[in-house]
């Protein structure tokens, strides 16, 4: 486990570097730049802008400067004097000139985080709940019913579930708002006004709930036929004790390994969900910055997504190790 984790940790910087490098050069390799689209900018101003943001330099030089700013700690300032400042500087946003990329991320990431956490919780609760009951009561009405729903949930992607939920609950029944976000914004503002989050969180969660339900059910079926479950029955334990204490852990292992890829998919899913429900989160920011050629903003969001992803995969590995004592020492 330790050695394995160490290998995974070594992977992290490589993965992030590859991601950053590809994104960086993808953005710059295409013809045109961020200041081409504003028609009113005349050639002179455009040149000055490009100079200000170092866009006149060779891409490789720009890349070097970008990486330098990105370093966790800055030891030297631009003149080469020693001056220690915190790093992780993603630079100014090209389009949103009053804010730096870091500021935009601080503003919008909490909104997405709230949405993502809500979706993850919903999918875990629904998926584990339905999966366990379906597995324990195999071939029951509940089993068939929930698995049929899960089948549909699997095939219907977020960007279909989202509009359909909006149609039924927002437009037809008028129960919930179909767009927007809490007026005070941020993480806690969103928490205080959950009505804006219910539909998007469910839209994001349902495909995962379906996957988790199926994985849990399959895991449960496998586990409850194990000898040690028979042992537990023979001890005279009650069914819910057997399910919760003896069976659930083993049944959850496939779910835990699925959570790594699931988080990646929730991140991509947030791109569409935030667009569908007009939520001012980081996913929508990524899409608009990409379309606007806002280089620094794109890089910032890509790095954020990359870090989240590798971090979550590591967490999943650790959790897996904690759940399964057998792999602790291997």
């Amino acid at each position: 486990m330790g050695r394995y984790l160490f290998r995974r940790l070594l992977q992290v910087p490589i993965v992030l570097l590859i991601l950053v490098t590809i994104s960086f050069f993808l953005m710059r390799a295409a013809p045109g730049g961020p200041f081409d689209m504003d028609k009113q900018v005349d050639a002179d101003i455009k040149r000055r802008m490009e100079e200000k943001y170092h866009l006149d330099k060779h891409p490789v030089v720009q890349y070097g400067m970008f990486l330098r700013d990105l370093a966790p700690i800055h030891v030297f300032d631009r003149e080469g004097n020693v001056s220690i400042r915190p790093g992780f500087d993603l630079g100014p946003s090209f389009k949103n000139k009053s804010l730096s990329v870091n500021e935009v991320i601080w503003l919008k990431a909490p909104v997405s985080a709230l949405l993502g956490i809500a979706a993850l919780l919903i999918s875990l609760v629904l998926g584990l709940g339905a999966g366990v009951v379906a597995g324990v009561r195999q071939n029951s009405v509940f089993d068939y019913g929930s698995m049929a729903v899960a089948m549909v949930g699997l095939a219907v992607p977020t960007f279909v579930v989202g509009p359909l939920l909006a149609l039924v609950f927002g437009l037809w029944w008028k129960l919930l708002p179909v767009a927007g976000y809490a007026a005070d914004g941020g993480f806690f503002g969103g928490l205080m006004a959950p009505q804006y989050l219910i539909l998007p969180a469910f839209a994001l969660a349902l495909p995962f709930a379906a996957r988790i339900a199926r994985l849990t059910r399959a895991g449960m079926l496998e586990v409850i036929n194990q000898d040690y479950i028979r042992t537990a029955w023979a001890k005279g334990l009650r069914e819910h004790v057997i399910v919760v204490r003896h069976a659930l852990r083993g049944a959850m292992l496939p779910v835990v390994s699925f959570l790594g890829p699931a988080v990646a998919q929730i991140l991509t899913g947030s791109l569409v969900v935030e667009q569908i429900f007009a939520i001012p989160g980081i996913g929508r920011e990524f899409v608009t910055s990409a379309m606007n050629r806002d280089y620094t903003m794109v890089m910032g969001t890509v790095i954020l997504f990359g870090v989240l992803l590798v971090a979550f995969n590591l967490i999943v590995d650790v959790v897996y190790g904690l759940l399964d004592p057998r792999i602790r020492y291997t």
């Binding site: 993965v15 994104s23 993808l26 990646a264 990524f286 379309m291 050629r293 890509v302 990359g306 992803l309």
Partner: peptide
């Protein structure tokens, strides 16, 4: 392959399509 697996590909595809 392991390393490539860890990369959030969809974002790169989006950037590719936007730019090219």
């Amino acid at each position: 392959v392991d390393i490539l697996f860890a990369i959030p590909y969809m974002f790169l595809v989006i950037l590719l399509l936007v730019n090219f």
